[in-house]
C-alpha cells in the first residue's frame, strides 16, 4: 500500500478524533447531569434518569445513530449528518459516564463525609472539597475506558455517511480493490489512537498516586 493512501487514512482519522473528542466532552458534561438525576431524591427525576441510562445502554449505537439521523428531520430539525452523529454519540456515552460517576460517588467513604460534617463544612463545601474530587479520582479509570470505547464506536458514524477513518478506508478499499492492507491500516490507526488515550489516562492516574503521598 502506498504512502499516499496511508496519509489519506491518517488525515481521515483527524475527523474521527474531532467527532469522538467533542462527543466525549459533551457526553461527560451530560453524564454529570444524568448522574445528578440518578442520585436525586426526587422520584420523577430519578425515574427519568434511570430510563435514559437503560435506553441508551440497551439499544445498539448503530440503531441509535440511524434513529437520530432520521428522527431529527422528521421532527423538523435540520442538521448536518456530522451534528446528528455527535448528538448520537454524546447521548450514548453520557449514559455510560453517568453510570460510572454514580459508582464513583457511591464509593466515597462515608467517614470522610461525616468528618467534613463534624468540621462544620456546609453541604456545598463538602461536595466541592470532598465528594466531587474523590469521586472523580475514583471514576477516572472508568471515564478513560469509556472514552476509548467511544473512539472505537465512532467508527459506526461511517454508516450515516461521514467520511471519517472507517468510511475513508471503505472508499479506498473499493476504489483500489485492496481491502486487506487498507482495513488493516485503519485498524492500526485506531489501535494507536486508543493506546495513546489509554496511556495518557494511565500516566495521569500514576501522577495522582504520587501526588497523594
Amino acid at each position: 500500500m502506498s504512502w499516499k493512501l496511508f496519509m489519506l487514512l491518517v488525515k481521515a482519522s483527524g475527523l474521527t478524533l474531532v467527532i469522538s473528542g467533542v462527543s466525549i466532552l459533551i457526553g461527560l458534561a451530560l453524564g454529570f447531569v444524568i448522574c445528578a438525576g440518578l442520585l436525586s431524591g426526587t422520584r420523577g427525576l430519578n425515574r427519568a434518569a434511570e430510563l435514559f441510562v437503560s435506553f441508551f445502554r440497551g439499544v445498539p449505537l448503530l440503531v441509535q445513530l440511524l434513529l437520530i439521523y432520521h428522527l431529527m428531520p422528521a421532527l423538523g430539525i435540520n442538521v448536518s449528518s456530522t451534528t446528528a452523529a455527535i448528538v448520537g454519540l454524546s447521548l450514548c456515552t453520557a449514559a455510560y459516564q453517568a453510570e460510572n460517576l454514580r459508582a464513583g460517588f457511591g464509593a466515597v467513604p462515608r467517614g470522610l463525609l461525616e468528618a467534613a460534617d463534624m468540621c462544620g463544612f456546609s453541604h456545598f463545601q463538602t461536595f466541592r472539597r470532598i465528594r466531587a474530587p474523590i469521586a472523580l479520582r475514583l471514576t477516572l479509570p472508568a471515564i478513560i475506558n469509556e472514552a476509548v470505547l467511544l473512539l472505537k464506536a465512532s467508527s459506526l458514524v461511517s454508516v450515516v455517511g461521514i467520511v471519517e477513518l472507517t468510511r475513508m478506508a471503505q472508499d479506498l478499499a473499493s476504489s483500489t480493490y485492496r481491502p486487506i492492507p487498507i482495513f488493516a491500516s485503519a485498524g492500526l490507526l485506531y489501535f494507536i489512537i486508543c493506546a495513546i488515550v489509554a496511556g495518557i489516562g494511565a500516566l495521569y492516574e500514576r501522577r495522582q498516586k504520587w501526588a497523594r503521598r
Partner: peptide, 18 residues
C-alpha cells in the same frame, strides 16, 4: 489486544472484504 483495540466494524470489514 488487537481485538480489543480496534472497532468491530473494521474487523468485520477486513474479514468480509479481505
Amino acid at each position: 489486544a488487537i481485538m480489543r483495540g480496534t472497532p468491530f466494524l473494521v474487523q468485520i470489514f477486513l474479514l468480509y472484504y479481505g
